[in-house]
Simulated assay, not measured.
Amino acid sequence: MDLNLLRTFMAVYEARSLTGAASALHVTQSAVSQAMNRLRRDVADELFYRSGRVMLPTPYARELFPVVRDALGRIENAVSAQTFDPAASGRRFRIALSELGEMHWLAGIVERVSAAGPGLSVDVLQLDPTSMADTLARGVVDVAINSANVPGGFQTWTLKHERYVVLMAADNPLATGDLDMDTYRAAPHAVVTGESGHVNIERAVEAYGGAGDPVAVLNHFAALPAMLSATNLIATMPQSLSARWVREWPLVMRDLPFALDPVQVRLYMRSAHQEASSLLWFRDIVLAATEAESGFTPVRSEPAAPGQP
Rank of each mutant, 00 (worst) to 15 (best):
E275R: 15
D255Q: 08
A259V: 04
W281A: 01
R266Y: 05
S294C: 06
R283P: 07
A288E: 11
Q264G: 10
M253C: 05
L267A: 06
E302D: 05
D261Y: 13
P303I: 00
P257Y: 13
R270P: 10
M253E: 15
V299R: 14
A292F: 12
M253I: 06
D284V: 09
D261T: 04
L279M: 15
A259Q: 01
L251I: 09
Q264Y: 10
S278I: 00
S278Y: 12
A289K: 07
D284K: 05
A259N: 13
D255Y: 01
A289N: 05
R266M: 10
G295K: 08
S301V: 14
V286G: 03
R300S: 06
M253Y: 09
V252I: 12
L280I: 03
Q264C: 06
T290E: 07
H273A: 06
V263H: 01
M253F: 10
P303T: 07
P257V: 07
L267I: 02
V299D: 00
S301A: 09
L280D: 04
R266S: 05
T297F: 13
P262S: 02
R283S: 04
A289H: 07
E291D: 13
L287Q: 09
L280A: 09
M269H: 04
E275Q: 11
M269D: 03
E293H: 13
L256K: 06
R300M: 14
S278L: 04
V263S: 07
P262Y: 02
R254E: 06
E275K: 12
V263N: 10
D261W: 09
E302Y: 04
P262C: 02
F282I: 11
R270H: 13
L251W: 12
E302C: 08
V299K: 11
M269S: 01
V265C: 02
E275H: 15
V299S: 10
I285F: 06
L267T: 07
Y268H: 15
V299F: 00
L260G: 13
L267K: 08
P298Q: 02
P257M: 07
L256N: 08
V263Q: 04
R270C: 15
E291N: 06
L251S: 09
S271D: 10
T297S: 04
R300H: 13
R300Y: 03
M269I: 02
P303H: 02
T290C: 03
D261P: 03
F296H: 14
L279Y: 12
A289P: 00
S294W: 12
R283Q: 15
Y268W: 04
T297Y: 11
L251V: 11
R254Q: 01
D284H: 04
V286N: 01
A276C: 11
V265T: 06
V263I: 15
H273T: 10
